[in-house]
Design a protein around this nucleic acid. Structure first.
Lengths: 104, 104
DNA sequence: CATACTTGTTTGTGTAACAAACTAGTTGAC
DNA sequence: GTCAACTAGTTTGTTACACAAACAAGTATG
């Protein structure tokens, strides 16, 4: 049995959701990104970015760092090794799924 | 405005759903496929295959041909030109989504 | 007639994505 | 010093929909 939290047809559902797919794709390039940067990079609302990020952090795919910049709260995010692995696996699974071998 | 029925983050939701993504990928290779073949190729239950196929045909992505083989009903499916276009667009959109350009 | 197939369709339920409302604190204007 | 507007997120309510299970309509076998 795989350690993926939940799957649909072999695709990690946590990553397959378009909003999170975009978030993960961005984080995968960025190393570190803060909330506002991700807002722009994904086009999500704050509410949705927050809710989706909560799922990724609960899954252990992303880590959260909360600090203060001046007096304002500031949060940044980075992918964990597990997150990177899961994303790699997702990419491979997606490619497999979309390239079926049809028996003659 | 695009003619895509409904989208999420630029991905055609009708195609992005894993079960239908698989169905479309198979049909895209197959030209024609009947219900039982698709059952095996997708791993879906009959109920889910039927329900998902209804959405694809309602969207005009797939055409249904009902006949009788002997005395038993027999249905086969093939993608429409619109379906093929939508699938191509989906593949391109997915690739764009997963390859974000991060500003330096 | 009855039981067990076939080939699908319909229905009930639980999950979850989305937008809108909310929390908690900060800055600026008067 | 207080009121309105802003920052940075979080929580909540509604709606849609994927899935499995039940159902339908007919066929075959004994």
């Amino acid at each position: 049995m795989s350690n993926r939290t939940s799957e649909r047809n072999g695709l990690d559902a946590l990553i397959h959701e378009p909003a999170r797919l975009r978030m993960v794709a961005v984080l995968n390039e960025c190393e570190v990104a803060d909330f506002n940067f991700l807002l722009g990079a994904t086009g999500l609302t704050r509410g949705n970015l927050s809710a989706h990020m909560a799922k990724l952090t609960e899954a252990g795919y992303v880590e959260e760092h909360k600090t203060f910049v001046g007096k304002l709260p500031h949060t940044d995010y980075r992918m964990t090794p597990n997150g990177r692995k899961a994303y790699k696996r997702y990419l491979a699974d997606w490619k497999r799924l979309t390239q079926p071998e049809i028996p003659g």
